[in-house]
Simulated scan of single mutants.
Amino acid sequence: MDVHTYQIGDARITKVTETLLQGLTPSFLYADWSDEVLHEQPQLRSLLDDTGTSVVLSVHTWVVEWADQVFLIDTGIGNGKERPFSKLFHQLETPFLERLAAIGIAPEGVDHVLLTHLHADHVGWNTRLVDGSWLPTFGNARYVMPQGDLDFFATPAGDSRRMVYDDSVAPIIAAGQAVAMATEGGSYLDAFRFHPTPGHCRGHMSISFRSQGETALFTGDVMHTPIQLYRPEWNSAFCHEQVQARQARQWLLDYAADHDAMLFTAHFPDTSAGRVSRGDQGFEWQFA
């Protein structure tokens, strides 16, 4: 798969793709879907597969190399994970670690793993199966995760996804490598900041990074496709708190436009990175 690398200040940021998800129709992804948006913004047709009937979503990790340290933003789905609730995630097998190696990143060379939230497609490579046990993939890393999502798993509502916690989060805690980020967010190593953006899930956070006057913003699942820049009121099928999701999206778009931030998204196809600007009719998107 193509490698896309960007420079933000003195940091190098590289996209490492795990897999592409296909088969989700626009009308499934967005309950308010109307083809009108494709007529108004014909460039959005490039988000669809070759049949023009389903949206292509990317699952990937952002690798940030900065200050002689390696940071991973989210870790994808992972290999060999039992995910009966999603055929797209269940027992996946990809050469993800080989793709990391291809850009010079070995598991033991990762210093920090920053997690926007604790869903199955964002924490999977936290661990890998070794002699029948799930162990941290990145044995020397600190894993920073939202306290709000940890709290969710402590409630009965988290039972339906308990397997995600058990194989991809609990082993990190047991190994003493977990760092909980407070629900109000905060800074991490000065250059990074966790921003509460609940809605997709209660503990969801977006992560900004600043270096030499330039800003990157790792969006997590505040948006799933660029369609939501042109229809920011549209929540996806995966937004659990409707009002908060719209508020988080508005905050993120305003922040990106106000700070001239490069957005590093979690599921946009193509390069998955780009910039937001304000136009006559609202927000506009340009892939980088």
Rank of each mutant, 00 (worst) to 15 (best):
A178L: 11
P171N: 10
A175D: 04
H195V: 10
M181E: 10
R202E: 15
G220V: 05
F209R: 02
A191P: 09
R202L: 13
Y188C: 01
M181Y: 05
V179R: 00
P171V: 05
P198A: 08
T219R: 06
E214Q: 15
G176K: 11
A180V: 08
R162K: 12
A178N: 04
R193W: 04
G186N: 12
R202A: 10
G220W: 02
S208M: 10
A170F: 03
R202G: 09
G203Q: 13
P198F: 03
G199V: 03
L217D: 07
I172H: 03
G185Q: 00
I173V: 15
L189T: 02
P171C: 04
A178K: 09
P196H: 03
T215H: 11
Q177P: 01
D221C: 11
D167I: 07
Y188S: 01
E184S: 14
G220A: 07
G185L: 01
P171G: 05
G199C: 07
V164W: 02
G220K: 02
I172T: 04
F218D: 03
E214A: 08
V169N: 02
S206E: 09
S168L: 03
M163W: 12
H204A: 13
Y188K: 05
V222N: 06
R210N: 13
C201Q: 15
C201S: 15
D166F: 05
G213P: 13
C201K: 08
M205D: 00
Y165E: 07
S208K: 06
P198C: 09
S206T: 14
A174S: 13
S187D: 11
D190S: 08
M223H: 14
L189R: 13
I172A: 02
L189A: 10
G199Y: 02
A174F: 10
V179Y: 01
P198V: 10
I207L: 15
S206R: 11
A178S: 09
G176I: 08
D221K: 06
H200G: 05
M163K: 14
G185E: 00
Y165C: 07
E214V: 06
V164I: 15
G220R: 01
V179T: 09
Q212V: 11
